[in-house]
Computed example of a mutant assay.
Amino acid sequence: MIGVLISFVSVNGSPGVSTAALALTWVWPRHAVVAECDPTGGRALSVFDPDGSHGRTGVFELMLQARSMPLHRAMSSQLLVLPDGTARHHLLPGVSSPREADSLDWRRLTSLFLDLETVDVLADCGRFRSRATATATLSEADLVVAVVANCRSSLQALANAVDVIREEHGVFDDEGLVVLIVDPDPRTHQRYPHGEIGKELGLHVVGALPWDPVAATQFSELYRPGRKFETSPLLTHGRKVADEVGQRAMQRMSWLRKPPPVVNGHVR
């Protein structure tokens, strides 16, 4: 079975986009790689390898190795197994600086993601910027997930950016761009009903991740989980979201990548 490419992006800061991509990969029902494709840099390696025992590894090193070996083989050498106990989920760390990002062939890297068999790629593209975003990773994705905080400023920012995302990255159909809501601290932010958010934006909401700072810290600061980590609200809700996102990506992938019809021996 062919894997899918799902790109995650935010439009106002990065309200949980990296944490969301990591959390969903952690509970993903199939083999998966979370790839840090934010041109401003990745942070996950410091979360899971704080002492640097794995050395320099990531997308930049992958493309360097690809000069002397097949791209798939180079990628295998750059993956870090996520410590979720399944051995099915991996991290491809991001660049260490914007200068490294500028030198990358993002289209070639995206082609690798699309060619992977039985492995889904969840690409953390960070904050949407018309120039700095890894354009190919968004435009070639089977599904683009806009991660938005459930607060007025973030929702307004996404509403203003929807048309730009669609136009600049080729996500023209209604099924190609969906929304993942991240609920903020209820003590400091007014929340809006999830159903109303989808209607206001004119986009499908694939689910919501709850305010769970204890569990979120395991993906954003340093991985030192407690006994209740696997049953935390973040991962419990994340499993439902992962199923929904995965199903929608598979459906759209089947439509996007279906072979053209052949009539009288000719492709039409």
Rank of each mutant, 00 (worst) to 15 (best):
G3C: 01
V4K: 04
V4S: 02
L5H: 14
S7E: 00
V9T: 13
V17C: 08
S18P: 11
A21F: 11
L22W: 13
L24F: 12
L24G: 02
P29D: 12
H31V: 02
V47W: 08
F48R: 03
F48I: 06
G52N: 15
E61N: 10
A66L: 10
A66H: 09
A66I: 01
S68G: 15
L71Y: 02
S77V: 10
S77A: 12
Q78I: 06
L80D: 11
P83T: 08
D84N: 15
L91G: 05
L91Q: 06
L92F: 02
G94V: 02
G94D: 01
S96W: 04
A101W: 06
D102F: 01
R107P: 10
R108E: 11
R108W: 08
F113T: 06
V121D: 11
F128H: 09
F128I: 15
T133A: 05
A134G: 09
A134N: 07
T137C: 14
D142Q: 08
V144I: 14
V145I: 15
V148M: 05
L155R: 04
L158Y: 05
D163P: 07
V164A: 03
I165K: 00
E167W: 00
E168I: 05
G170I: 06
F172G: 14
D173R: 08
V178F: 07
V178T: 04
V179T: 13
D183C: 01
P186A: 03
P186T: 14
P193G: 03
E196A: 07
I197A: 02
L203C: 13
V205H: 06
G207R: 01
G207V: 08
G207T: 11
P210D: 05
Q218N: 14
Y223S: 12
P225T: 10
G226Q: 12
R227D: 07
F229R: 11
F229W: 15
T236C: 06
G238A: 10
G238N: 06
K240R: 13
V241E: 07
R248S: 09
R248P: 15
S254Q: 14
W255Q: 14
W255G: 03
R257V: 10
R257I: 11
R257A: 06
K258P: 03
P260R: 12
P260H: 11
V263L: 12
